[in-house]
Design a protein around this nucleic acid. Sequence first.
DNA 1: ATAGTTAATAAAACCGGTTTTGCAAGTCAA
DNA 2: TTGACTTGCAAAACCGGTTTTATTAACTAT
Lengths: 336, 336
Amino acid sequence: MKKLSINDIARQLNVAKSTVSFILNGKAEEKRISRELSKKVLEFAEQAGYRPSQLAKSLSTGKTQMICLMVEKISDHFFSHIAYHLEALAYKSGYKIIYCSTENDPDKARELISVFRTRQVDGYIITPPVNIDAEIRDLLNDNLPVVLFDRYLPDTPTDYVGLDNYNGTREAVEHLIAAGSKRIALVTLNSGQTQMLERLSGYMAAIKRHKLKPLVLKGHFEDEMEATVKLTVQFLKDNADVDAILFATNYLALSGIKAINELGLNIPTDIAVIAFDDHDVFNIFNPPISAIAQPREEIAKQLFNTLLDKLENKESLKVVRKIIIQPKLVLRGSTR
Amino acid sequence: MKKLSINDIARQLNVAKSTVSFILNGKAEEKRISRELSKKVLEFAEQAGYRPSQLAKSLSTGKTQMICLMVEKISDHFFSHIAYHLEALAYKSGYKIIYCSTENDPDKARELISVFRTRQVDGYIITPPVNIDAEIRDLLNDNLPVVLFDRYLPDTPTDYVGLDNYNGTREAVEHLIAAGSKRIALVTLNSGQTQMLERLSGYMAAIKRHKLKPLVLKGHFEDEMEATVKLTVQFLKDNADVDAILFATNYLALSGIKAINELGLNIPTDIAVIAFDDHDVFNIFNPPISAIAQPREEIAKQLFNTLLDKLENKESLKVVRKIIIQPKLVLRGSTR
DNA sequence: ATAGTTAATAAAACCGGTTTTGCAAGTCAA
DNA sequence: TTGACTTGCAAAACCGGTTTTATTAACTAT
């Protein structure tokens, strides 16, 4: 019951295995192999249910048809959805995806990249933690396709697919102001990652344009939800005049909503709420939560196409593309 | 800048590559290779930063150190968390995980299994759709380790890690009854999968034990959330006496909560709510939603250990283990 | 002294493909 | 009619490892 190999076919038909290989790869004509023999081999392979070993193929071609998807945490709502869409796209092109979570730890990320290199994956889709510029550069130097997303490395030019975070928060704040909010806070993370900085910039820009006073709370990535809730409760107590909050991630928003509930404040009468990055459940809340939505399928599509182009087109390795996708401000009941 | 191979090392040191292989694999002693040569090779490899090709290794050993994780949908809250925990466990043992989503489509599942077979993954962790008994049996016949989870195939004995679904719903209903509910509905899916049937059975058992009348609404897996909300709204209108609902999945619960909100009913005064499968956001709702929690990390641990045992221990392939994990009823404000 | 061990390593076969090179027979042109 | 070119396929090399078998020199026992 063991799988049959190209050698078995060659032996059983009394044909050289190179010939069999050519025929099975559609190079029969090019290699001037008789129609007769070609047919014989094809029929035999078909009837025997021959499946070439991807492993052997990879070893000789150097292509594994595998893509590394390295994200912060695969269980995160955003990343797991990106993973879902990427899988569908990869599938159509014969690629498989291996995922891994960095937990935002540069050491872990480095180690993971090293492992994937020995596995010779064909390309990388990465949400980089800080300080892995060197490893990313190594990949690029070895002509391995890399596309970053969600955040990028300012000092290392690479292909990148990301949201227009700046515009996302800017527009959200503009909307809040237009709807009458006067005291708008931003709850974000104490993070140096580009997407967070951009979100902060967008907020600041809109606030300043309207000559309002900025008010920013910075939580910590590692914190448990309870800690963040506490932090937000205290923040709201200390700043009782806040009439709108923009949350820089959906998890911060969830903690924030809990904090608002605990304080017995009403959304949106007492306080308007907008979350960055939409979440399935935002629509369920009462009132439903407005969000700056990231078009996840579009992001996945751009990621995959960018990578695929580099995988199939050597020339493409030399160009560096930045693809910036516009967010959608989805207004629901949590804003006036 | 190309990677150096075992051949390069052998050539540069004027040593047979078999010798190098033995030394690098710690078989120097066993193969009676001089301490001197051994040291020379090890030092050279170390300083040259030699990394053996996993591909070549796989081809000759037949082991790829890869595991296929086949779930219904990788973006699902439950599955993405299982994926997360599995990754951490696999990492420690040198395994990598390739995921794929079946969308509950047997044809897609079959195709995926075929692809993974040509890639020679070492083992499979699968949430099977119905009607893929034949393919699972084929895997087992070829001595490939397979562990099912979440649901199993009644006609095909395999290793399995799953929740005690029956007890989960049974206890939840018992709790509702003890808290005073008289008219308890179950909202579930129109699905023949074992986990759904078990949840239904547990509900029925508790209902009957207390001589209550069962009331079951069956939604459809493929439905959009809006459709499910509508269905639930109508159901609640048609059955105004319902004072408690048990939702058989967390997505059904989310739709249900929306339906309840739309009808202006109060949780838990008008209607108590318990969801099967806990969700990060349940704690955020006001009131927070009670749930029958699946110990995800424990499930992942059992899955991985079961698989690993079969991967490393030939004998273990012959035994079939069913591991049933007890759920935890997490009571929050949505029940009285 | 000679066969039999053993130590230490080299050589070769194998895993299952792809790709380059080789070769015999037939065809064509000079 | 003979060298050059094509046809159609076989043979071999290669990808980078693991594992089995072979070889040689020194050592031991008879």
